[in-house]
Amino acid sequence: MSNIQKAFEKKKQEGQKAFIPFVTAGDPNLEATEKFIYALEKAGSTIIEIGIPFSDPIADGPVIQKANIRALEKGITIDKVFDMVAKVRKLTKVPLVFLLYANTVYYYGIEKFFKKCKEVEVDGIIVPDLPFEEKEEFNAYATECEVDIISLVAPTSKERIKEITKDARGFLYCVSSMGVTGTRNSIQTDLKSMFETINEYCKIPTALGFGISYADQAKDLKKYADGVIVGSAIVKLIEEHGEEAEMPLTQFAQEMMTALQD
């Protein structure tokens, strides 16, 4: 069982759903990102998702796009993020998952990338522009280095769910809505039927993401999955509070923890 799955398992035993917050690395700077990771872990986050800045994050809405640009303007590269993770690893073993685009891995060198992930103990990666048809090139190295490539299913996936879940690792990222990441007032997808299919085939934990921004929303939605992922709402807090975002992030995470209690 991978670290990611163990973390879900532990939450389950505690009678809680998993909370997976997302921060963009280097927004507003890497020292701040490091502090945010500690704060989010301390507040009870199950896994922390770290966005690697990219010029053209096509699966992301305006909030995360802007965070990417802010980080790139600071000269953040993946090597600097790896260095930060190495530092973080001296203090916490909370599972860390990178969200990045296929070209970032490809440019770094696929083999070198996964070896580096193993070295600094990155537990998994989420690649929004890498559907399972294209995974093979990455998979061999990922498996060898014990890094989970997290699979995504979307409201449009339907019969593909069976195929996708067959070799899914870590957890299954269930995309709640059409379009890009970002806060939404309501989620239109028929989650009930989407999860009927998912639960029929999926043997690993599931987490619901895209458009979840309030604790009340998490409370309503937690019945579907084993955890929830929150990105844009957190990035927005960081945009507002900059380096001082630790407190608001802690408060937000605590509200989420309460909402996710069974």
């Binding site: 096509i58 699966a59 296929a102 929004p128 522009d129 890498l130 559907p131 048809e133 294209e134 995504l152 299913v153 979307a154 409201p155 449009t156 996936s157 339907k158 593909r160 996708i164 995309v175 059409m178 379009g179």
Partner: peptide
């Protein structure tokens, strides 16, 4: 070549 796009678009 290939099809490097989000899962949401794969069926389409």
């Amino acid at each position: 070549g290939g099809q490097y796009i989000p899962e949401t678009l794969m069926n389409a």
